[in-house]
């Protein structure tokens, strides 16, 4: 269960950008709450990222739909631990999809951060990388220490099988979005126009 390593807490504001690296290497789908704010902070209004403020559980299957439509592109899903556990079966769907350019980073603060910082299941030692490996993800790792972040950044760029990184971070609040809200229609239009040339 890796309790001891799991209790190490990387700083959220530096760990997420460091693991993702150049966000332009991917098409990104980010689930609600902290994960969406993390991705928003990488590049405000980026036209290669779709960020959600609800529909908990959507991140992995939505990223999968995007990857099926764009098999030549590398899709990165960024999701929180609460959302991932709500839709854990979607890892099985992804793993059996035949895709190889599909990476998931689970940003795990061990808390339900949006609702009062209640303790989440992952605080009690759940090893999500082993879970993902069991579903059939080829490359999986727990990134919980400073010297593991660069390894994680390289790993999510592998294109020879599905990648899952369980990123343990502090329970400090995620970066605060500045001005724009995550408008579902606007983000869809921006994303499609950049990718497809039309809305």
């Amino acid at each position: 269960m890796n309790q001891q390593r799991g209790n190490q807490r990387l700083d959220r504001a530096t760990a997420v950008p460091r693991v993702i690296g150049n966000n332009r290497d991917f098409l990104i789908v980010s689930g609600l709450a902290g994960a969406a704010k993390d991705v928003h902070a990488l590049e405000e209004g980026a036209d290669n990222a779709y960020l959600m403020g609800g529909a908990m559980g959507a991140a992995v299957p939505m990223g999968l739909g995007l990857a099926l439509a764009q098999p030549e592109r590398h899709v990165l899903v960024v999701t929180g631990d609460g959302e991932l556990l709500m839709a854990i079966g979607s890892l099985a769907v992804a793993a059996t999809s035949g895709l190889t350019r599909f990476s998931v980073v689970c940003v795990d603060n061990e808390r339900y951060g949006e609702t009062g910082n209640q303790i989440a299941h992952t605080a009690m030692g759940i090893d999500l990388a082993t879970v993902a490996r069991g579903f059939g993800f080829r490359h999986t790792m727990l990134a919980a220490a400073e010297d593991e972040m660069d390894t994680a950044r390289d790993l999510i760029r592998r294109q020879d099988g599905l990648v899952f990184v369980h990123l343990k971070i502090s329970d400090a609040p995620p970066p605060k979005p500045s001005s724009r809200s995550f408008d579902g229609v606007e983000r869809k239009h921006i994303f499609r126009k950049a990718l497809l040339g039309h809305v």
Binding site: L27, V29, Y50, A55, G57, A58, A59, V60, P61, M62, G63, L64, G65, L66, A67, L68, A69, Q70, R73, A87, G89, S90, A92, V93, K188, F191, R192, L195, L196
Partner: peptide
């Protein structure tokens, strides 16, 4: 799918990708 709502999100993602 393992549950039907995955198909709802999957369809939205597919639309993002054309």
């Amino acid at each position: 799918l393992t549950t039907e709502e995955e198909g709802v999100a999957l369809a939205a993602g597919a639309h993002l990708g054309g």
